[in-house]
Computed example of a mutant assay.
Amino acid sequence: MIKPFALQEGDRVAVIAPAGPPDKKQLIQGKRVFEKMGLDVVIGRHVFDVEEDLVAVDQKRLADLHEAFCDPAVRGIFCAGGGFGTARIAPMIDYAKIQRNPKIFWGYSNITYLLNAIQIFSDLVTFHGPMVASDLNDEQRTVGTESSFLPLFTGESLAYDSRKSPLITLAHGTGEGRLVGGNLTLLTNGLGTPYQVNTNGAILLIEDVAEPAFRIDTMLTHLNQAGVFDAVEGVVIGNFQVEPDEYAKIKKVLQDFFVCAPFPVVENFHIGHCQPNFGVPLGVKAKLTASPPRLVIDSGVI
Score class of each variant (00 low, 15 high):
residue 3 K to C: 08
residue 4 P to E: 07
residue 7 L to Q: 06
residue 7 L to Y: 04
residue 8 Q to C: 08
residue 9 E to A: 14
residue 10 G to H: 04
residue 10 G to L: 06
residue 13 V to W: 01
residue 16 I to Y: 03
residue 18 P to T: 11
residue 18 P to F: 12
residue 22 P to T: 09
residue 24 K to T: 12
residue 30 G to I: 10
residue 30 G to D: 09
residue 33 V to Q: 13
residue 33 V to G: 01
residue 35 E to H: 02
residue 38 G to V: 06
residue 40 D to R: 13
residue 46 H to P: 06
residue 48 F to T: 03
residue 53 D to N: 15
residue 59 Q to E: 15
residue 59 Q to W: 04
residue 59 Q to F: 06
residue 65 L to Y: 09
residue 66 H to W: 01
residue 67 E to R: 13
residue 70 C to P: 00
residue 70 C to Q: 14
residue 74 V to I: 15
residue 79 C to R: 08
residue 81 G to M: 12
residue 84 F to L: 09
residue 85 G to D: 07
residue 85 G to F: 07
residue 89 I to Q: 03
residue 92 M to T: 11
residue 92 M to K: 14
residue 93 I to P: 09
residue 93 I to K: 01
residue 94 D to K: 05
residue 104 I to V: 15
residue 108 Y to L: 15
residue 109 S to C: 14
residue 112 T to S: 08
residue 112 T to I: 05
residue 114 L to E: 06
residue 118 I to G: 04
residue 120 I to R: 14
residue 121 F to C: 02
residue 125 V to Q: 07
residue 125 V to C: 10
residue 129 G to E: 07
residue 138 D to G: 01
residue 138 D to C: 04
residue 138 D to L: 10
residue 140 Q to L: 12
residue 142 T to H: 03
residue 147 S to H: 13
residue 147 S to L: 10
residue 148 S to I: 03
residue 150 L to E: 14
residue 150 L to I: 14
residue 152 L to W: 11
residue 155 G to F: 00
residue 156 E to G: 08
residue 159 A to H: 10
residue 160 Y to I: 15
residue 161 D to T: 08
residue 162 S to C: 05
residue 162 S to M: 02
residue 163 R to E: 13
residue 170 L to R: 14
residue 170 L to A: 05
residue 172 H to M: 10
residue 177 G to E: 09
residue 180 V to L: 05
residue 181 G to Q: 05
residue 181 G to M: 07
residue 182 G to F: 03
residue 184 L to Y: 00
residue 184 L to P: 04
residue 185 T to G: 11
residue 189 N to E: 15
residue 191 L to N: 12
residue 196 Q to N: 05
residue 197 V to F: 08
residue 202 A to P: 03
residue 203 I to E: 02
residue 211 E to N: 11
residue 214 F to Q: 12
residue 216 I to G: 04
residue 219 M to Q: 15
residue 223 L to A: 05
residue 224 N to K: 14
residue 226 A to D: 08
residue 227 G to I: 05
residue 227 G to D: 05
residue 228 V to P: 01
residue 235 V to K: 00
residue 238 G to E: 01
residue 240 F to C: 12
residue 241 Q to I: 00
residue 241 Q to H: 10
residue 243 E to S: 11
residue 244 P to Q: 02
residue 245 D to C: 04
residue 246 E to Y: 01
residue 247 Y to S: 09
residue 248 A to D: 13
residue 251 K to A: 13
residue 253 V to W: 06
residue 253 V to S: 05
residue 258 F to Q: 03
residue 258 F to I: 01
residue 262 P to D: 05
residue 271 I to N: 09
residue 275 Q to D: 09
residue 283 G to H: 01
residue 283 G to P: 02
residue 286 A to P: 02
residue 286 A to K: 00
residue 288 L to E: 10
residue 288 L to Q: 07
residue 291 S to Q: 14
residue 291 S to K: 10
residue 295 L to M: 08
residue 297 I to Q: 08
residue 300 G to Y: 04
